[in-house]
Amino acid sequence: MSLQPPAPDPVGDNRKIIHVDMDAFYASVEQRDDPGLRGRPVAVGGSRARGVVAAASYEARGYGVRSAMPSVTALRRCPDLVFVPPRFDVYRSVSQQIREIFARYTDQIEPLSLDEAYLDVTSDRAGLGSATAIAEAIRAAIREETGLTASAGVSYNKFIAKLASDQNKPDGICIIPPAQGPAFVAALPVKRFHGVGPVTARKMEALGILTGQDLRERPLDVLQRHFGSYADYLHGAARGIDHRPVRTHREAKSVGAERTFENDLTERDALRAALERVVEAAWVRIERSGVAGRTVTMKLRYSDFRTITRARSTGQPITERAQFLAIGLDLLDQQLPVAGGVRLLGLTLSGLNVAHGGEDGPSQAELPL
Rank of each mutant, 00 (worst) to 15 (best):
T73W: 00
T266K: 12
E144C: 06
S28D: 13
V279I: 07
V246T: 05
G39Q: 10
R259I: 08
G147I: 06
A179V: 02
L112Q: 10
I142W: 09
F261L: 04
A24F: 05
A133W: 10
F102K: 03
R216W: 00
E267K: 04
V72H: 11
I109T: 00
V354H: 06
S155G: 09
S130V: 03
P177M: 01
V190L: 06
I109M: 00
H249R: 15
M1H: 14
E320F: 12
G341L: 03
D115L: 02
D333V: 07
V44D: 01
Q96P: 03
A274R: 00
D89M: 04
L188M: 14
G290R: 06
P85D: 15
H235N: 12
G181P: 01
P41Y: 01
E116S: 09
R268P: 05
A339G: 12
G212H: 08
S151F: 06
D232R: 13
T295H: 02
Y63V: 08
T297L: 05
L114A: 00
V82C: 05
S165E: 12
H249I: 08
Q364E: 10
S47E: 14
Y105D: 08
A27D: 04
G340H: 12
Y233R: 10
G328H: 06
A322M: 04
P79L: 04
R250W: 13
